[in-house]
């Protein structure tokens, strides 16, 4: 029976992953900012077959709670097999360009606090000597694009951090997987003008994540074709790239 910690449990991708694990009778500790979403997800997962669901209101920016929270989770579940770190905000790029405070706030939530949390989480897993840490990063971190480079900066930091953490913890028997979803139809991306043909459903991304965890993939692009799209984008010469409106 898998013991699963979900940070940012009300995010669409996290919810879809949790639903898959609930069908396998997993035990959960769910963390999110919105308690209404938490309590409805709690009931939902139990009906789907979860053996146990704990949930607690939690904001990743409350650094002082990280250590106590992780100890509690580990104690309640009796160790952690899977930690899914899926929280995040997609700030408004134009507003971030005008306000350094706002830009720093985005970096705080999506990068700094995430790294602080992953530091403690990594150490806990290292001590356990087993388990999988899944971190939702983004294709936005692969290249700084004018449309969302603040968000992209945060995700680039998280991606690099996870790559290093993975290489470190591998020796301790822990797997850290970085997930780079493409365009996904979620509440976070609502209102964005996205090409329908490339748009994925959270359920599709979740199924990819669960499959990739079993195969111990290090970096997952999902859906798969983003690996090739991003390989293309990364190789566009900057002299030309800067003329594009990506």
């Amino acid at each position: 029976m898998k013991k699963v910690l979900v940070v940012g449990a009300s995010s669409a991708i996290a919810e879809a992953v949790a639903r898959i694990f609930s069908g396998q009778g997993a035990k959960f500790y769910l963390l999110a900012r919105n308690s209404e979403k938490l309590s409805s997800l709690e009931a939902d997962l139990l009906i789907r077959g979860a053996a146990l669901v704990h949930s607690e209101r939690f904001d990743i920016n409350e650094h002082w709670r990280h250590e106590v929270m992780l100890n509690t989770v580990s104690e309640v579940l009796g160790g952690i097999d899977v930690a899914l770190v899926a929280h995040g905000t997609l700030g408004n790029q134009q507003e971030c360009e005008q306000s350094p405070d706002l830009a720093l706030q985005e970096l705080q939530t999506n990068a700094v606090s995430t790294i602080a949390f992953l530091t403690r989480l990594g150490n806990l897993f290292e001590k356990q000597g087993r388990g999988t840490i899944v971190v939702i990063s983004s294709i936005a971190g692969d290249r700084g694009r004018p449309s969302n480079y603040v968000y992209g900066t945060a995700k680039a930091a998280v991606t690099t951090f996870c790559e290093g953490l993975n290489a470190r913890l591998f020796k301790a028997g822990v797997h850290v997987m970085t997930v780079k979803p493409g365009l996904v139809a979620t509440p976070m991306t609502e209102g964005l003008d996205m090409p329908k043909a490339l748009l994925a459903e959270p359920e599709q991304v979740a199924a990819d994540i669960v499959r990739a965890m079993e195969k111990k993939i290090d970096t997952l692009y999902t859906p798969w074709f983003w690996k090739y799209i991003m390989a293309g984008i990364v190789h566009i010469p900057t002299s030309f790239f800067k003329k594009l409106n990506l």
């Binding site: 409805s40 997800l41 009931a43 939902d44 009906i47 789907r48 509440p187």
Partner: peptide, 9 residues
């Protein structure tokens, strides 16, 4: 579409 949670069974 987001209000898709099971409540009780």
């Amino acid at each position: 579409r987001y209000l898709d949670k099971f409540i009780a069974f």
